[in-house]
């Protein structure tokens, strides 16, 4: 049976995508050998596998993901972290300190306090228990400067681009350091406020136009134009 839609056409939940011997990929499901879409998105037929690239999602943690989170609470064993997900994350002291934690002498808030931002890695999550984080790896830990942009987690792959093409271009063109969290938070830190502003505008534009083609070129052009106006 032929495919019922063209590649990258917008589909809505419940749309029948194909019938027969196919595999249900992302945001699709199988019912009586029929593949249906379960989210609003762009359909992609990849041989036997059918995916829907969602236009809007929320973040469900996965082991290995790098995320940006905010400390919301500190308790006896560690911290509770808001990672922009339905499930609050837990950062235990053993995953934050390089030495044993002594509850009688150490004060947790000396290391991380409520409202601090951290760049962390998800080490485990299985939906029955809250996700666990670690910051005991290079480049992870407390975020000290920069600005945070919030985008839909569905757009994160677009911000990174194929093999990092988009993010590489953005870093080069805006001269900002850009750290992307899989949970939809992006840290932008540049030498000047103006550099950061351009990078943020570009990220917002990517989010809005994520489902269009030829985006990298358009963003490059936009950034160059913005920069041109600054130097004149």
């Amino acid at each position: 049976m032929p495919f019922l839609y063209e590649n990258r056409q917008i589909v809505t939940p419940g749309d029948l995508l194909a019938e027969g011997d196919y595999l249900a990929g992302f945001n699709t499901y199988k019912h009586d050998s029929k593949i249906y879409a379960s989210r609003l998105g762009l359909v992609e037929y990849k041989g036997r596998k059918i995916d829907v690239v969602a236009l809007n999602t929320f973040y469900i943690p996965q082991a290995g993901d790098l995320v940006i989170g905010k400390i919301v609470e500190s308790n006896l064993h560690g911290w509770t972290v808001d990672i922009n997900s339905p499930y609050p994350a837990i950062l235990r002291t053993s995953e934050a300190l390089n030495r044993p934690f002594r509850p009688q002498r150490d004060e947790l808030s000396e290391f991380l306090d409520v409202n601090d931002l951290i760049f962390a890695k998800v080490i485990s999550f299985d939906r029955t228990r809250d996700p666990n984080l670690t910051i005991r790896e290079p480049d992870l830990g407390k975020i000290k400067y920069g600005q945070i942009v919030k985008v839909s987690p569905a757009k994160i792959p677009r911000i990174i681009g194929r093999k990092g093409s988009m993010i590489g271009m953005l870093k080069k063109e805006t001269r900002c350091n850009i750290t992307v969290g899989q949970n939809g938070l992006v840290l932008v830190s540049g030498r000047t406020r103006e550099d950061e502003r351009i990078a943020i505008t570009a990220i917002k534009k990517i989010e809005e136009e994520a489902h269009t083609t030829g985006l990298t070129d358009r963003i490059t052009e936009m950034v160059r134009k913005e920069r041109g106006e600054v130097t004149q």
Binding site: P13, Y29, R39, N56, T57
Partner: peptide, 11 residues
Amino acid sequence: LADAGIPMRDL
């Protein structure tokens, strides 16, 4: 619900 990105079997 569809706008919120919540997976559904059908509208």
